[in-house]
């Protein structure tokens, strides 16, 4: 079946199978390899992308359901002309990256949560920020610097 959607700001049409998972559409179909496969069971968050601005696990999401929607992956986070989004800048500045395998997913979760907070005019506390990242596992950093980065994005 054929679906139309927007990916990182650009309209695309793509032929997929009914059972295709979004992560496979992104990595194999669109060759955007920045979205990472960590577990394929919704536990690690490495595959997190934004659908209409909200973070979801692309490994547990049917590609058919992005029809008519807008997907953002790590490659499109910075937008058309920016090179780095503030989320990426803060992750670098705070030292929130080690091996980097979790980083794409972390960045997308931070983006989604900080946008929501901004919309609601809310400045979340540390526990709330940490909670928003519970679906993103990181084996390297111990999370502290990632949460620091997220806090500074949300505080902005």
């Amino acid at each position: 079946m054929k679906i139309n959607f927007t990916i990182n700001g650009k309209g695309r049409a793509k032929e997929i199978k009914a059972s295709t998972l979004l992560i496979d559409l992104i990595r194999d179909g669109l060759k955007l390899k920045g979205t990472k496969p960590g577990c394929f069971e919704g536990e690690c968050g490495a595959c997190t992308v934004l659908v209409d601005g909200h973070a979801i696990n692309s490994c547990l999401y049917l590609a058919v359901n992005v029809a008519g929607k807008s997907i953002t992956t790590i490659e499109g986070l910075g937008g058309e002309d920016q090179f780095l989004d503030i989320v990426q800048e803060k992750l670098i500045e705070h030292g929130g990256v080690q091996c980097g395998f979790c980083t794409s997913g972390m960045a997308m979760s931070i983006k989604s949560y900080s946008d929501k907070c901004k919309e609601e005019g809310k400045v979340p506390n540390r526990n709330e920020v940490a909670k928003s990242l519970e679906g993103n596992l990181c084996r390297c950093t111990g999370y502290v610097k990632i949460v620091d980065a997220a806090i500074s994005v949300c505080g902005n």
């Binding site: 968050g45 999401y61 993103n136």
Partner: peptide, 9 residues
């Protein structure tokens, strides 16, 4: 329940 990403769907 689960995580922010799962709660979204």
């Amino acid at each position: 329940l689960a995580s922010m990403q799962i709660r979204q769907v």
